[in-house]
C-alpha cells in the first residue's frame, strides 16, 4: 500500500466531486481550486469519463413534446428578427382581400383536448416586449393554443390574430383574442395547411375586430411559425 499523500487525497476528492457527494461548502472550495489547477480538472474529467459508463444501463425515455417548445421559449424569447419586415408587410399594400376565410372558434376550457402535442410554435413579441404571445399548433387536433405571457389590449381596443401563409402577402384573420391569457383556437382545415412556415401577427383593432378583413390598426407583435 502506498501512503496516502496529497495526490491520493485529490484522487478521492475528485471522485467525490464527480459523484456529487461533497456538501455545498466543500464543493464550492473544490471548484475554486479547479479554476487554476489543470491536473485536478484532469482527475475530475477521468472520473466523469469512467463513471458515465454506468449510465449505459439507463433506458432513454422520450420527453413530452411540449417540453421542447418550452425550452425554445425560455431561450429564444427575444423578438424575432423578421418582426420589422412583417410589420412592413402588414402595414403595406397587401391589405386588400383576405375576406371571408376567418373562422374563430374559442373552445370552452372543459373541451380542451387532452394530450395536446404541438408540432409548430411561434413567438409573437413586440420589439420592446410589451406584448408577448406564445402560439403552438397541434395539427392532429387542429388546435392553435395561445398563451399571452405579457401585455394586453389597449384600453377600449382588442387584439386580433392574423396568419400570413408562407409565400403569401395577404394576412388572414384568425379572430379576436379573448380577454383571458390562455385560449385554444380551432383552426379550419383550410387554414391549418397554411400555418407551417407562415407568420403569425397581432394587430390593434376596434372592439369586435377589423371590419375590413385586413389589419387596420398598429401591428403590435409578430413572429414566424417554426416546427418543433
Amino acid at each position: 500500500m502506498t501512503p496516502v499523500d496529497d495526490h491520493d487525497d485529490d484522487v478521492a476528492l475528485a471522485g467525490e466531486y464527480a459523484l456529487h457527494l461533497l456538501d455545498a461548502q466543500a464543493r464550492q472550495a473544490f471548484e475554486d481550486r479547479l479554476k487554476d489547477d489543470p491536473a485536478l480538472r484532469r482527475l475530475v474529467a477521468d472520473w466523469d469519463q469512467h463513471f458515465v459508463s454506468l449510465a449505459d444501463e439507463i433506458v432513454p425515455v422520450a420527453p413530452p413534446p411540449a417540453l421542447k417548445a418550452r425550452i425554445h421559449k425560455t431561450l429564444f424569447a427575444t423578438p424575432a428578427k423578421t418582426t420589422a419586415s412583417v410589420w412592413r408587410l402588414l402595414m403595406g399594400a397587401g391589405f386588400a382581400a383576405a375576406l371571408g376565410l376567418a373562422v374563430l372558434v374559442v373552445l370552452p376550457p372543459t373541451e380542451l383536448p387532452d394530450g395536446f402535442t404541438p408540432a409548430f410554435t411561434a413567438e409573437l413579441a413586440a420589439e420592446d416586449q410589451s406584448l408577448v404571445v406564445l402560439a403552438s399548433y397541434a395539427p392532429d387536433a387542429g388546435i392553435l393554443r395561445i398563451d399571452r405571457q405579457a401585455g394586453s389590449a389597449r384600453p377600449g381596443r382588442v387584439l386580433e390574430l392574423w396568419l400570413i401563409a408562407d409565400g403569401s402577402s395577404v394576412p388572414v384573420s384568425l379572430g379576436v383574442l379573448p380577454d383571458q391569457t390562455a385560449t385554444d383556437i380551432a383552426l379550419p382545415p383550410a387554414l391549418a395547411d397554411s400555418i407551417a412556415g407562415g407568420t403569425l401577427a397581432i394587430s390593434d383593432e376596434p372592439p369586435g375586430g377589423s371590419t375590413t378583413g385586413a389589419p387596420t390598426g398598429d401591428v403590435l407583435a409578430a413572429g414566424p411559425v417554426v416546427s418543433i
Binding site: V61, A62, P63, H72
Partner: peptide, 15 residues
C-alpha cells in the same frame, strides 16, 4: 440545437 435535442433528449431525460 433542435437536432441536438432530438438526438439526445431521450437519453438525458432518462438520466
Amino acid at each position: 440545437f433542435s437536432s441536438l435535442y432530438d438526438a439526445t433528449s431521450a437519453k438525458l431525460f432518462g438520466v
